[in-house]
Design a binder for these strands. Structure first.
Lengths: 209, 209
DNA sequence: AAGCTACTGAAACAGTCGTGTCAGCGAGGG
DNA sequence: CCCTCGCTGACACGACTGTTTCAGTAGCTT
């Protein structure tokens, strides 16, 4: 009885034990479903019928519901990390004049894009939930994204501004304004005001030093 | 059969139809419960037993679960508005030199206080949920708090900076950095880094103009 | 042909959910 | 005394939850 691939936490090997075509296929379908329905009141039967499967199969492939949610969260995080990695490539070697201001404006153009709205709503939901309920499938999600973003922002700071408390404060304020403006945008859909605000902040960052 | 006080939407009268001592008493108890358990998986039976009541009574006093959640959300918003009102009193008449920077630092000292952590977690949860599920009990929560805060920040801007797109952008960036830093603080509990960031932002706001 | 692996369908399990029903309590006013 | 008003307990209803059991089926390997 093989039962349960469940993608465990690295069995000594470096790569995960082959997600199996069907696994990724259903994960992708479930991800699409989660993007428009949210994760809060996700339940197996409606999801399964929507993606043309059955609760039995989801249990088989993901172990249990927590496994499914964890897989969906990881899937969402992959989208986020994909963008961050593309961001991270940008700074060429030896160049020192990457200002946080440029990065902020660039990141904002991605955050504000209408096609990313579902992903970012899902992100907000997972973030908030992992604050309220630090155990279970959501554990550490908020913390993880903060670290991801701060790391990538650090790589976009000039080397001599990167270290020390001042550098950390600069990254933190850049991240804060991006996330705050994102929350605003998600609630009000006021793209011009929020974009003006981010541009204003970028101007402040360039001016003061 | 009197059944259902349910606090309807203003029956022509200005004030609500007397919340009844028991109503407010149980609401307060339920609010305390929600502050530590969150609203996501709130359910009547555990809540009722925890606060020494019964589902029957909660149904009687709040109509249904949505009514209860709405009442809890309104209760949380009252805490928020109480602070905003105290903030709003500050600017004396005729004074024009209230800079947003001062307000930002003052608000942050309230947001960062450890005793407000449960309220702010609840706030984040309600905010995110109202984004994903714009109907039902959560409807409009995110939008409402954005408007509340922007209004109060506007009252703290010098009169000649208040109007126009530039003024709106200033308020928006102030709100954004506060909320972004709050999200960071809730996730990482790193009070010194987030506070440094807010102070840095206040310095930027004062310096640039 | 046999056997193993990956996957699937149907049905049932026990539990929880919100809600409704029917009755009954104590207190205050006529 | 009785009758209404605000509140409450006990219980059951139907719907839905995650999960399990049992029984497969299709494909590849030996």
């Amino acid at each position: 009885m093989p039962e349960e691939p469940t993608t465990p936490t690295d069995p000594a090997s470096s790569t995960a034990p082959a997600p199996s075509a069907r696994h990724t296929e259903l994960l992708e379908a479930a991800y699409g479903y989660a993007l428009e329905h949210g994760l809060a009141d996700l339940s197996l039967r409606p999801l399964a019928t929507a993606i043309g499967s059955s609760p039995r199969v989801l249990m088989f492939l993901f172990g249990n519901k927590d496994g499914l949610v964890r897989a969906l969260l990881a899937r969402a995080r992959r989208d986020e990390l994909a963008f961050l990695d593309r961001l991270g490539e940008h700074p060429g070697p030896g160049e020192d004049d990457h200002r946080l201001a440029d990065t902020v404006e660039h990141v904002w153009s991605w955050l504000a894009a209408a096609e990313h709205r579902p992903l970012l709503r899902l992100w907000a939901e997972a973030y908030a939930r992992s604050l309220v309920e630090p155990d279970g499938a959501w554990a550490g999600f908020a913390r993880a994204t903060v670290d991801d973003w701060l790391a990538v922002l650090a790589s976009h700071q000039p080397a001599r501004e990167r270290d020390g408390a001042a550098g950390a404060a600069d990254r933190t304020v850049a991240l804060a304004v991006l996330r705050g403006a994102l929350l605003d945008l998600l609630a009000t859909d006021d793209q011009v005001r929020t974009t003006d605000a981010v541009r204003r902040q970028a101007a402040l960052l360039r001016g003061g030093l």
